[in-house]
Nucleic acid binder design. Structure first.
Lengths: 257, 257
DNA sequence: CGGTGCAAAGTTGGATCCAATATACAGTTG
DNA sequence: CAACTGTATATTGGATCCAACTTTGCACCG
C-alpha cells in the first residue's frame, strides 16, 4: 500500500475517489486550503492535480474563483455516451481482430473480479473492476490515442456512475451482458461486439434518463459554468432524436433529410 | 494587447506558440527553470500550464524526470486523423442541420481571413485562421464535449501542421476546398459536408505520409517514451488497411471478415 | 581494463510566504 | 428604503525557498 511516487499523483487519486464516491458532489466548490489540509499536503500538488481534472472535464475552473466539481446536465451525459458509442465501436472492431489469447484471458479475469465484487455487494470495487474489464477488452485495439480519449470520457461521468449500480437488477444485468461481450470477443466478432457494447451502454443511459432532472424545463440551462458548454441554440428541445439514436456508427438517414 | 488575467494562461499561450512554431521541438526536454526565466515568471504557473498540455498529449511527463515535447510517430498521426474523421463526421452532420445564418456568415468570414493570410504568405496567421474556420463550421453542432475532444486532437498535432502549409500547392488546395465546404454547409448537406472534410483531411495525411519518417523499419518503435503508446502487438504491419481507410464512419466489411 | 559504488551537481517536487483578486458586509447617500 | 461605495475578509495566484530524486562523472576495486 505504498503511496504513489509523487504527491500530485496521490492527490489525483484521492480526488478521483472523492468525486466517484460523491464525497465531493457536483457543483460543489473545492476549497484548496481545506482539501489540502485534509490530505495532509500543501496546495501546490493539489492545484496540479486539479489542472489535470480540469482538462478531463471533471472539475470546472474559473480564474480567481477556483475549482468546482463539474455538474453535468442530462444533455451532457447523453452527449458523452454518444461519443463513447462512436469511439468504442471503432475500438471494438480493432480489438476483436487483434486481441491475443493472453489479453482475452485478462478480460475474463476482470469479468470474474466484477462478479466477485457483485457477490460481496462491494459497489466501489465492482465499479472499478467493471472499468478494468472494459479497458482490458478495448486496449488490444492498439490505438493509444483512442484509448486516452475513451478513458477521459469515462472519467468525466464518474460522478454519475454510482446511480446505475445501486439497483440489484442492474448489477445482475451487467454480469450477463459481460458474459455475452466476452463470448463475442473470443469469437473475434467485431460487429457483434460493438452491438453488445451499444446495448450495454443504452441500459445505463436509460437509467440516467429517469434518474436525472429532465433538461431543466425552464430556459437557463444550469450546466457547468464558464466551460466549453456552448448554449444550445434552440433552447430546450435537445436536438430532436439526436442522441440515444441508432446502434453503431452513424445512425440517422442520409444527412440532409 | 493585454496579458491574460492569469499568468498560467499567459504561459500556456506562449508554450502553444512555441510548440507550433517549432521553437520547442518534438522530444526536446523542457527545462522549467530556463523556460520560466525566459518568460519572466516563476516555475509554479509554468508547471500548471504544462499539466494542461500533458492532459492534451502535447507534452510527455515522467515523474522526477520532467516534461518533454511529445514526439508523434507516423502511426500516432494517422490514428489522430482517424479519430478526427469519426468525430468530425458526427459534428458535420449535426452542424449542417443546425447552423444558423449568423454562424454561416462567421464561417465565411474566417474563410476570407484564410484567403487573405494566404495572399500575404503569412503562414502562422493562415494556420490560425484555418483553425478558426473549421471550428466556426463545426461549433453549431451544439455538442460541447465533442468539440472539446476535437480541439484536443487538433492541438495534439499542432507541431506537425506547418509542414503541410509550406507548399504553395497545398495552400491553394486548402482555399478551393474550403469554398466547397462552405457551399455544402450553406446547402445544409451534412453528408456532402462530411465527405468534403474527409477528402480535405486526406490531403494532409498524404503529405505527412511522405514527409514523416516511415514507421521505423526496424522493430523498437521509438515513440514518445512512457506514454499511452502501447506497443503494436504485430510489429510493423500497421493493422492492414485500418487507418486511411474509407470515408466516413466505419470502413471495413463486416467485422470478422 | 572493465565494472561497481559513491559522491556531487543539476533538476524536479513540495511547502511556506506574500500579493492580487473576488466576495460579503456595513455604512452612507440620494 | 433602495442603491451604491468603500472596506474587511476569505480565497486564489505566484514567488521563493528547501527537500527529494535522478543523473553524471570519478574514484576505487576486482
Amino acid at each position: 500500500m505504498s503511496r504513489p511516487p509523487t504527491t500530485q499523483q496521490f492527490v489525483l487519486d484521492e480526488l478521483r475517489k472523492a468525486i466517484l464516491s460523491g464525497e465531493l458532489a457536483p457543483n460543489q466548490p473545492i476549497r484548496q486550503d481545506s482539501v489540502a489540509r485534509r490530505l495532509g499536503v500543501s496546495r501546490v500538488p493539489l492545484r496540479e492535480a486539479l489542472k489535470t481534472l480540469e482538462a478531463e472535464g471533471q472539475v470546472v475552473y474559473r480564474p480567481h474563483r477556483g475549482y468546482t466539481v463539474a455538474e453535468l446536465s442530462l444533455d451532457d451525459l447523453l452527449e458523452v455516451y454518444r461519443l463513447r458509442e462512436l469511439l468504442e465501436t471503432e475500438a471494438a472492431h480493432h480489438a476483436a481482430r487483434r486481441a491475443e489469447a493472453a489479453e482475452l484471458e485478462r478480460v475474463a479475469a476482470e469479468h470474474r473480479a466484477v462478479a466477485e465484487a457483485a457477490e460481496r455487494e462491494d459497489l466501489v470495487e465492482m465499479i472499478a473492476a467493471n472499468r478494468r474489464f472494459h479497458f482490458a477488452l478495448l486496449e488490444p485495439a492498439g490505438m493509444p490515442w483512442l484509448m486516452r480519449v475513451i478513458r477521459t470520457l469515462w472519467d468525466a461521468t464518474d460522478a454519475y456512475r454510482a446511480v446505475y449500480y445501486n439497483s440489484v437488477d442492474n448489477r445482475g444485468r451487467v454480469l450477463t451482458e459481460h458474459e455475452a461481450i466476452l463470448r463475442a470477443a473470443r469469437e473475434r466478432d467485431g460487429t457483434e461486439l460493438a452491438r453488445l457494447l451499444h446495448a450495454h451502454r443504452q441500459h445505463a443511459v436509460a437509467a440516467l434518463r429517469d434518474t436525472m432532472p429532465p433538461p431543466s424545463g425552464g430556459s437557463a440551462a444550469h450546466g457547468p459554468e464558464g466551460r466549453p458548454h456552448r448554449a444550445r441554440s434552440g433552447g430546450q428541445s435537445p436536438a430532436p432524436g439526436h442522441h440515444d439514436a441508432g446502434p453503431p456508427p452513424f445512425p440517422d438517414g442520409g444527412g440532409q433529410e
